[in-house]
Each structure stands twice: as C-alpha cells, then as structure tokens.
Amino acid sequence: MAGIVAGATSATLLIVGIFWWNCCYKLDDEVSGVLFGDEFQMGWNLGKLGKGGFGVVYKGYLRDSDTYVAVKRISKASKQGIKEYASEVKIISQLRHKNLVKLIGQCHEKGELILVYELMANSSLDSYLFKGKTLLTWEVRFKIVQDLASALFYLHEEGDHCVLHRDIKASNIMLDSSFNAKLGDFGLARLVDHEKASQTTHLAGTLGYLAPECVSSGKASKESDVYSFGVVALEIACGRRSIESKYEESQVPLVAWVWDSYGSQRLLDVADPKLSMNFDAKQMECLLMIGLWCVHPDQHFRPSIRQTIQVLNFEAPWPKLPSTRPTATYNAQITSEIQTSEPCFSDMSIMVPR
C-alpha cells in the first residue's frame, strides 16, 4: 500500500509539474511576443538590424515611452557571449557621454540574455564607408572622427577608472539621425586603474585593428585603443577597409600603403576617390597624419588621445614621422579571444609589415 500511495503521489506531482511548466513557458512566449513581435519569435528576418559576433540585433518598440530601440539577443550557444553580456552590463551601464551608445536596459531570464540600446537611425559607419550606402561628405567624416576622439578621451581620462574598449572599429561606431557618431559594443571592454592603464589578458579584438604589441603580449592599453582609433581614421579618409584583398598587393594593408604614400610625398593621393576631391585639403592631410601617428608600430611613439584631439583641432603642430614605416617583429602565443566576427588563430609568429 505504501508503494502504491507513493507512486500515485509521484505521478500527481509530475502531472502538476508538467502543467505548471507548460503554462509558465506559454506565458513567457506570450510576453516575448508582445514585447518583440512575431518577427522576434518566428521570422528571424523581419525587424532584424544585423548580426554580431555573439548575437542578433532587432528593432524593438517600447510602448510606455513611445520609443524605438535596438534589442540584442545573445546567442545561447556562445560561452563568450555570456562574458560579453556581463562586461557590457557592468561597464557601459556606468558610463554617460553623448558619444557613447546608451544602454537602456537588460534582461536575463530563462536562459535568455537581452540587451536594449537606443536605436541609432543611420546604422554603423562601416555600412557607409564599405557597403555602398549614401556617400558621407567630408564635413560629416571629419566630425565623426572628432566625436570618436571625444568618446575615447572620456573613456581613458574622465572617469573614476580608465576604460579600455579593445574593439574600436568602423562597425562599432554608430550614427544617429544627425550623423553624430557614438561608440558602442563594450563586450570586450575592461576597467583598469588610471595609474596602470593596461591589462594583460587573452588576445581580443578584430584583425586589421589590433595593435602589434597586443598580438605579442596580449596586453591591452590606452595605446592599443589609440592604434585602433588611428586605423579607423585612415579608413574614413581613404574610404576602404584596413585589409582588403581586391587592391594591388602593395595596397592591401591600408596602413603600409598610406605610410608609403607619405614617404613619397604623395599623401593626398590616398584620399577616398568617391569624394571627387570635395574635401578640405588641410583637414585631410591632418587626419592622415594623425592616423599614421596613432598606428606607429612602437606604442611609445603614439600620442595620447588628448594630444590627438589637440592636433585634430589645429591647436598643436603635426607630428614628425619617419618617411619609412618602422618594422616590428613579434613572436606571439595567441589565445582564442579574437573577436568572433573574425577567424581565430593558434600559436603563430606575426611580422608587422613595413
């Protein structure tokens, strides 16, 4: 009798448990449907803004505030995505600056990791520079560089801690309805003391934007962020990616090509041909010189972001650079925190080309 009673009780609890489970998850699905619409639950095409390394970004709507937002759903299959989510919430929620993408809220329930940001009406910088969207005028481009420099100065100098972004690139620079630039995606960012201003970690970032010493040591610093800023500055001036195979072999690495043109006193020849010479020559030359200064292979010769802003605003003289780009060789033990939009690598040696 005791066995029969125990079995009957267990069966009843199991049935109740299954009923409760189904009801809860049905309700959860209904709530998700109200918040994000059918496209979030079923379509994966409608309302989709883009796909990053650790998840998909959708366009959402907040009824209470009558506001459209960007909703990032972290991939459940990505362990690195969970780390990115935690870093994003920890760091960017503490930051407030006009040139940083604002994190509105987050949610982590029933295995879902959701980040909600302000919606940037004009998407990301790379879609204009490299993907054929409307041509950005020179005035807009120069302002974007100034906005990015302002954001980086805030991260490096103005907070209680120094924030190392570690993944500054064109696709992480968002543009609002007035083409004001805002730096986003803090999933790889780290907080460090101002006195130290560097951190040895696993190698993280995106190929083409990584400073050579990061590859060698895995050490992120203000100088490595400045290097990435310099690459973006050159991309904005030249209208092409830092690494693009469709060009002649001598022009494939953007940094090397621009430095060779500088050494040959043909610096303005690298200006984006799509601009059809509609740019301020002094500003263009200034931006290219700043870009080369920031991507100097030796981090000790790079400017601080404060010095960069001074030159960008024509408040300080341009740097004096060698006509030939210095060469640096590094033997690297590379670990697997390369940004997921790029291939991962095992142990290898890297030669930074001239």
Rank of each mutant, 00 (worst) to 15 (best):
N313R: 15
K282R: 14
I144T: 04
Q80I: 05
F153N: 11
A328I: 14
A170T: 15
G17Y: 05
V101W: 00
Q339N: 14
V215M: 15
Q299V: 12
I236N: 07
C214T: 10
R63I: 10
I243W: 07
E342N: 08
W318A: 14
Q265R: 15
L203H: 13
N45C: 08
I334R: 02
T201E: 12
T327P: 00
L155Y: 03
V232G: 04
L268S: 07
V252P: 02
I305R: 00
L287E: 06
T137C: 12
N180V: 14
H300V: 13
D160M: 09
E30K: 12
S304A: 08
L188T: 08
K169N: 04
S323F: 13
G218F: 05
C294W: 04
G60N: 06
Y262N: 03
E213C: 06
S78D: 13
V226F: 06
F186T: 00
I334H: 06
A316V: 03
M277H: 14
Y128Q: 03
T340D: 13
A170P: 04
V16N: 04
V5H: 12
Q106F: 09
S250T: 08
F186I: 04
K26I: 09
R166C: 11
L136Y: 04
Y128D: 00
A6Y: 09
T340R: 05
E248M: 11
S123C: 09
E249Y: 13
V145P: 05
V192I: 09
